[in-house]
Design a protein around this nucleic acid. Structure first.
Length: 211
DNA sequence: TATTCGATGTGCT
DNA sequence: GCACATCGAATAC
């Protein structure tokens, strides 16, 4: 069981900054979701940035609609959308109100509540299949449309940093599963972490940075 | 091990 | 009507 005093919740100013910065800095942070009396917890290992009206792959590229409305809010809330008829994806809304931008959480390394996550996912062959993808993460954490608009500065879903700084190598690459804006290097992941989406694009690393 | 493909429903181009 | 920020099973090799 985690010692919660070792984790410091990210506050509103963290989220209202520029989206690329938030996407990088969300790596190695810990996402918590209330589960009965305890919490499910996982380390964020893979993210993608979606940059409002300058990014053709972004849901908010054209104009505000019923679906993308949360993206235009001030940073620090959840944007959860339904995709491919079966799945959900969880995003962290960024920047100030009026800019339709967010960070997609694509991969998480389970830290606490792992038995509950396995129950949520059903039969899997390898441990990393628990949460090595945006919709796998949502299934493991029981995230769906009820969590859209959730305030991440409250205590049902939130993200924390660990008290001690952890140094990591971040790989930068192209985003996955899109056509428009496909060449933009807005995917960030912790190098060599098994909970990063397995994909041949992982070999097309553009640069590496150290956080 | 790598690649293809069907399922599924919502929101647009 | 068709594309879609996916997953997992089936197929090919």
């Amino acid at each position: 069981m985690l010692n919660h005093s070792d984790y410091i919740k990210l506050n509103k100013p963290f989220y209202t900054r520029d989206t690329v910065t938030v996407a990088k800095e969300l790596l190695c942070k810990y996402i918590f979701k209330k589960h009965g009396k305890s919490f499910l917890c996982g380390k964020i290992v893979e993210t993608e940035a979606y940059l409002g009206d300058e990014d053709p792959a972004c849901h908010a590229f054209r104009k505000i609609t019923k679906r993308n409305e949360p993206m235009f809010e001030s940073g620090g809330i959840a944007y959860v959308y339904f995709i491919y008829g079966n799945y959900y994806c969880f995003n962290v809304v960024t920047e100030k109100q009026g800019i339709g931008s967010a960070v997609l959480i694509r991969g998480v390394e389970p830290v606490d509540g792992i038995q509950a996550m396995k129950k949520n996912r059903g039969v899997i062959k390898k441990d990393y299949e628990l949460s090595n993808g945006p919709s796998k993460f949502c299934l493991a954490f029981n995230i769906d449309k009820k969590d859209n608009w959730e305030d991440l500065t409250k205590d049902r879903i939130f993200i924390s940093k660990y008290r001690k700084k952890e140094s990591i190598t971040v790989s930068v690459a192209k985003r996955i599963g899109i056509k428009e804006g496909a060449d933009l290097p807005y995917r960030y992941f912790i190098k060599d972490n098994p909970y990063v989406t397995k994909h041949k694009l992982n070999k097309e690393i553009i640069t590496e940075i150290t956080l």
